[in-house]
Amino acid sequence: MTSGPPIAKFASLIGEPARALMLAALMDDRSRTAGELARVSGVTPQTASAHLAKLTQAGLVAVQSQGRHRYHRLANVEVALALEALMTIASTPVAKQQLGPADAELRHARSCYDHMAGEVAVRFATMAIERGWIDDAREDWTLTPDGAVAFETLGVPLPDASKRRPAVRPCMDWSERRPHIAGQLGANVLRACIENGWVRMRPHSRILTVTREGYRVLAPAATKPSPLPREARY
């Protein structure tokens, strides 16, 4: 596409089904080869390479070479935020892995680029607001002094004021239709959860497995807790 507003170019790139599936697969903030993305999107490796070349040229995907392999990832957090916003608008997710029996697990706990999404993440955000750790009085959330103490106590690094990325912001969850925590704080929470063994990332999936200790920390007092998936009950 050579004419029209820039948004039309990006909409055309993202709107192609195979490319949409590839981008959704990269939403777990991990890199994948063209062959892996070909299997995700159901196209041949040659077709996948052609799609990835277009996404890379447009600045939506970045490539890193290591030995004989080329690894693809989302170019930056802005691309991830745009994709998450589109998933929110859509009534269902776009990735094939999110259909069928796995759908309940993705809705329960998953990665959203570099932060946590799903029911558990929304419950944690709700708890943080109810306890006064986060002030949600305005569109842009604010980390309160009590919240700074609470997150440091949990071992979650506080946002760095020198960085351009927002310290904390709400991210509308496409499955819960309520916000979870994004921004620097959201990324720090997910990193701390992984390091402390509160959640485990599944290979080649956005699904997060929440451990017993993770439930104690992340969702001990939800306003209206939903039943946990059978495999997560204890």
Results as ranks from 00 to 15, higher is better:
Leu52Asn: 05
Asp28Pro: 05
Asn196Cys: 09
Ser41His: 05
Ile181Phe: 00
Ser205Arg: 00
Gly183Thr: 07
Ile207Gln: 11
Ala150Asn: 08
Ser31Lys: 14
His204Lys: 14
Thr153Gly: 09
Ile89Ser: 10
Thr88Glu: 09
Val122Cys: 08
Ala182Glu: 09
Arg216Asn: 10
Ile134Cys: 05
Lys224Ser: 13
Ser31Ala: 15
Arg169Ser: 02
Cys112Gly: 13
Arg178Gln: 15
Gly35Phe: 00
Ala219Pro: 08
His72Glu: 01
Asn76Leu: 00
Glu195Tyr: 00
Trp141Gly: 08
Asp160Glu: 07
Thr88Met: 08
Glu176Pro: 03
Cys112Ala: 15
Asn188Arg: 02
Arg216Cys: 10
Pro157Ser: 00
Arg164Asp: 15
Pro157Asp: 04
Lys54Gln: 15
Thr92Trp: 03
Trp141Lys: 06
His108Trp: 14
Arg138His: 13
Leu190Asn: 03
Ala128Lys: 04
Gln97Cys: 06
Ala50Lys: 13
Pro170Arg: 05
Phe10Met: 09
Ala150Arg: 10
Glu36Trp: 01
Met22Ile: 06
Leu23Trp: 04
Leu52Ile: 05
His51Phe: 10
Arg230Ser: 13
Thr56Met: 06
Pro227Trp: 00
Arg39Asp: 15
Pro159Ser: 04
Ser205Gly: 02
Ser3Asp: 14
Glu36Cys: 02
Ala150Met: 06
Glu36Met: 01
Arg206Glu: 11
Glu195Arg: 09
His69Leu: 15
Ala58Thr: 09
Phe10Ile: 14
Pro225Tyr: 00
Met22Trp: 03
Leu106Phe: 15
Ala117Pro: 12
Pro166Phe: 01
Gly100Asn: 00
Ala48Arg: 03
Phe124Cys: 08
Met22Asn: 01
Glu119Lys: 02
Ser3Leu: 14
Ser175Val: 11
Arg32Glu: 09
Val120Cys: 05
Pro6Met: 04
Gln57Trp: 04
Lys96Leu: 14
Gly118Phe: 01
Leu158Ile: 08
Asn196Thr: 11
Pro157Arg: 00
Gly155Ser: 12
Val199Gln: 03
Gln57Met: 06
Ala48Thr: 02
Gly214Thr: 08
Phe10Pro: 08
Thr88Trp: 11
Pro203Ala: 14
Val43Gln: 03
Ala50Gly: 12
Pro159Thr: 07
Val40Met: 03
Gly67Ala: 02
Glu84Cys: 09
Gly59Tyr: 03
Glu139Met: 11
Gly100His: 05
Leu86Met: 12
Gly147Val: 02
Thr47Asn: 04
Ser12Phe: 10
Ala232Leu: 06
Arg19Pro: 13
Glu78Ser: 09
Val43Ile: 04
Arg123Pro: 10
Ile181Leu: 01
Arg169His: 05
Cys171Asp: 14
Ala38Pro: 07
Gly42Met: 02
Ala121Phe: 00
Gly59Arg: 00
Trp174Thr: 12
Leu228Trp: 06
Pro229Ile: 02
Glu176Ile: 08
Val43His: 01
Thr142Gln: 15
Pro45Cys: 05
Val122Ile: 05
Leu26Thr: 11
Asn196Met: 13
Ser41Cys: 10
Arg178Cys: 12
Ser49Ile: 09
Leu208Ala: 08
Leu74Ala: 01
Ile134Tyr: 05
Arg110Gly: 07
Ala117His: 07
Gly59Lys: 01
Ile89Phe: 10
Arg138Leu: 11
Pro203Asp: 15
Gly100Thr: 06
His180Asp: 15
Phe151Leu: 04
Arg206Cys: 11
Arg164Glu: 15
